[in-house]
């Protein structure tokens, strides 16, 4: 490398890092200047984040309790089977525990010997088996909508992977080319910085962060300065458009935990977000465990290959 190209590289590094720094400062400044009721959802700390991430079994069990007692009244979880509750990497209930838990679950029965699925206008049911999917609260989407004022409570099976925290970004219209350029450079640098930060921290928890934020961002009254919402809707800071059909599902002491954990709203929100993450990614622990071994292996092999390459090339100019 010539001195000149080194200088160019140095200049490039300085420019990039400088603009990243500038963007960060500008972003921080922007926050201070924003109106007082502006809402900033934050990244939470989760036991399952990072390279060595693992679920907290007790937390998953609490999360299941919340789903079972609260969410499942309206939300289905069609990709889950009761047997999943005892599989490794999850809440790891014992078989007997799960059997006891599903003793009162009734699943729609297969057609009986007369070919009927209804008796006296009621759906015929049978006791749930371990291999059955979680019982859905409604027979179909139309029934779910009819029971919920026209809004469909979404299935929660992969919810924790289907949502993310909203990205920060100006998106503001700049009225002249100079401001557009400045805004553009700042936003681009912020994006580069954001990607770098995500990769360094292996950020994959946008879904649980969103769910936690959604559970904790209800307002009883529409805050001052916010757009009015229809009467049958509820105000939630993080929900797109702020008007959400779901009434606040959790508050302090919504569920009385079997393990004696203090039932605060914050605790409920963390527990259900964790549970939904496991539901969306039941192989998360296996993935991270396998991944660590794979990375160590590939690192060793690539170091060996580097030594081989050096040994082979040692006599050659190139």
């Amino acid at each position: 490398m010539s001195i000149k190209s080194k200088l160019v590289a140095l200049a490039a590094i300085l420019t990039v890092s400088g603009s990243v720094g500038f963007a960060t400062i500008a972003e921080a400044g922007g926050h201070d200047g924003a109106e007082h009721n502006a809402y900033h959802p934050a990244r939470q700390s989760w036991t399952f984040g990072g390279i060595f991430g693992k679920f907290d079994r007790a937390q998953l069990r609490r999360g299941y309790q919340i789903y079972d007692e609260v969410c499942s009244a309206c939300h289905s979880m069609k990709l889950m089977s009761y047997r999943n509750l005892m599989e490794s990497g999850g809440p790891e209930f014992t078989k007997d525990e799960v059997k006891k838990m599903i003793a009162d679950k009734a699943v729609p029965a297969e057609p009986n010997d007369e070919g009927a699925t209804y008796a006296d206008g009621e759906r015929i049911t049978r006791p749930a088996l371990l291999t059955d999917r979680f019982v859905s609260p409604y027979e179909n989407d139309k029934a779910a909508m009819a029971a919920n004022g026209g809004a469909l409570p979404p299935d929660l099976s992969v919810m924790a992977k289907a949502r993310s925290l909203p990205h920060a970004g100006s998106g503001k219209e700049a009225d002249n080319i100079f401001f557009a350029t400045v805004a553009g450079i700042k936003e681009y640098a912020g994006w580069v910085f954001g990607v770098a930060r995500d990769i360094v921290t292996q950020y994959q928890e946008g879904g649980p962060d969103y769910i936690y934020a959604l559970m904790t961002s209800y307002e009883e009254e529409v805050p001052e300065g916010a757009k009015p919402i229809p009467e049958d809707k509820n105000f939630n800071h993080i929900f797109p458009g702020n008007a959400i059909s779901m009434a606040p599902p959790l508050s302090d002491e919504t569920v009385e935990y079997a393990d004696g954990t203090k039932p605060t709203l914050d605790q409920h929100a963390r527990d259900i977000a964790t549970f939904l993450m496991w539901v969306a990614e039941p192989k998360l622990e296996e993935r991270k465990r396998t991944g660590f071994m794979a990375l160590v292996y590939l690192f060793i092999l690539s170091m060996l290959m580097y030594m081989v390459k050096r040994a082979i090339w040692s006599g050659q100019k190139h």
Binding site: Y297, L298, I300, L301, L304, M307, V308, A311
Partner: peptide, 13 residues
């Protein structure tokens, strides 16, 4: 030795 070790590690993986 280096070549054989690398080959062995590669094949195992």
């Amino acid at each position: 030795f280096l070549y054989i070790a690398t080959g062995a590690v590669g094949v195992t993986g």
